Amino acid sequence: TSIVNVSSSLNVRSSASTSSKVIGSLSGNTKVTIVGEEGAFYKIEYKGSHGYVAKEYI
């Protein structure tokens, strides 16, 4: 489990790309479970499925 480190919110994306669809967002200090990594993104558990967040904010 890791913590989201942002002051406002962090986009959760459908794939490991800044141009991919935003499927949701997480607020600062939210706990997330990392299940993998791809480039500059972590794959996380998100709403019963998976999403991707930028590593620099975790």
Rank of each mutant, 00 (worst) to 15 (best):
N29W: 14
S20Q: 02
S25H: 13
S27I: 12
T1N: 11
K21G: 08
Y52I: 00
S15T: 09
G48P: 03
V22L: 07
E56H: 09
Y52L: 01
S8I: 14
S27P: 15
S2V: 15
G28H: 13
I23T: 02
K47A: 11
H50Q: 06
A40N: 13
S25A: 10
K31Q: 13
Y57C: 15
E45W: 09
V53H: 00
L26M: 06
S20H: 04
G48F: 05
S2Q: 12
E38A: 07
A16T: 05
I23D: 01
R13Q: 13
V12H: 01
E38H: 07
K31E: 10
G28Q: 13
V4W: 03
S9D: 10
S9L: 10
V12I: 09
S8Q: 12
N11D: 15
S27D: 14
K31M: 12
F41W: 13
T18M: 15
Y42H: 04
G51R: 01
E45H: 06
K43H: 04
E37Q: 08
T1K: 10
S27C: 14
V22E: 03
I44W: 03
N11S: 13
K55P: 00
T18R: 12
E45N: 07
E38Y: 08
V4A: 10
A16N: 04
N5E: 09
E37W: 09
V12Y: 00
S2A: 15
K43F: 05
G48N: 08
I34E: 00
G39R: 04
L10I: 15
S15I: 06
S14M: 14
S25R: 15
S19F: 08
I58Y: 05
N29A: 09
L10Q: 06
N29C: 15
K31N: 10
G36V: 03
K55T: 03
S7E: 10
V6L: 11
A54M: 12
I44Q: 00
Y46L: 03
Y42S: 03
Y46N: 01
S20A: 14
N11V: 15
V35A: 04
N29T: 08
E38N: 06
G51A: 08
E37S: 08
L10R: 05
N5L: 11
A54G: 09
K31V: 14
T1R: 13
G36Q: 04
T30I: 09
I58A: 04
G39Y: 04
I44P: 02
S9M: 11
K31W: 14
S17F: 05
E56R: 11
S15N: 09
E38K: 07
I23Y: 01
S7D: 10
H50M: 08
S49M: 14
E45D: 08
E37A: 08
K47F: 10
I3E: 08
T30P: 04
G24S: 02
S49Y: 08
V35E: 03
S27F: 09
G28W: 13
I44C: 03
E37M: 10
K55D: 00
K31P: 12
K21C: 10
Y46F: 13
S19Q: 11
I58C: 06
G36I: 02
V53C: 03
S2C: 15
S17Q: 07
N5D: 09
N29H: 11
V4N: 08
S14Q: 14
I3H: 10
S14R: 09
T18Q: 11
V32K: 01
V22Q: 04
I34A: 01
V53P: 00
N29G: 15
V32M: 07
S7L: 12
G24D: 03
G24P: 00
S2D: 09
I34K: 01
G28F: 13
I58S: 04
T30G: 06
V35T: 07
S17P: 00
T1E: 11
L10G: 06
Y46T: 01
A16G: 05
H50C: 08
S19K: 11
S19N: 13
S9V: 12
V53Y: 01
G36Y: 03
I44L: 02
V35G: 01
T33M: 09
V22H: 04
S8R: 13
A16R: 02
N11T: 13
S19Y: 07
L26K: 01
K47H: 09
S25V: 15
S27E: 14
Y57E: 15
E38G: 02
E45M: 10
R13M: 15
T30Q: 12
G51Y: 04
T1D: 11
I58L: 11
T18N: 14
V4Y: 04
F41V: 01
E56G: 07
T33I: 13
S20T: 03
E37H: 06
T30W: 07
Y52T: 00
A54N: 09
K55M: 07
G51H: 01
S49V: 11
Y52K: 00
K31S: 11
Y42D: 03
I23A: 01
I44S: 03
Y52F: 10
S19D: 13
T33D: 05
S49N: 08
G51P: 00
Y52H: 01
S25E: 11
S8M: 12
G39N: 07
S17V: 05
G51N: 01
H50L: 09
S25M: 14
E45S: 06
T1Y: 05
G48K: 05
E56A: 11
I23R: 02
S8L: 11
S25N: 11
K21S: 12
S7C: 15
G36E: 05
Y42E: 02
S15E: 14
V6Y: 04
G36M: 04
K43W: 05
K55W: 03
R13W: 15
T30M: 11
L26D: 00
Y57M: 11
K21A: 13
S19M: 10
H50I: 15
S7T: 13
G48H: 05
L26S: 01
F41H: 03
S8G: 15
G51L: 02
G51W: 04
S7I: 12
E38I: 07
S17I: 05
S25C: 15
Y57I: 07
S8K: 13
K21D: 11
L10Y: 09
A40S: 10
A54H: 08
E45Y: 07
T33V: 14
G39D: 07
S17M: 06
Y52Q: 00
K43N: 02
G39L: 05
A16Q: 02
V35I: 14
E56C: 14
T33E: 07
T30E: 13
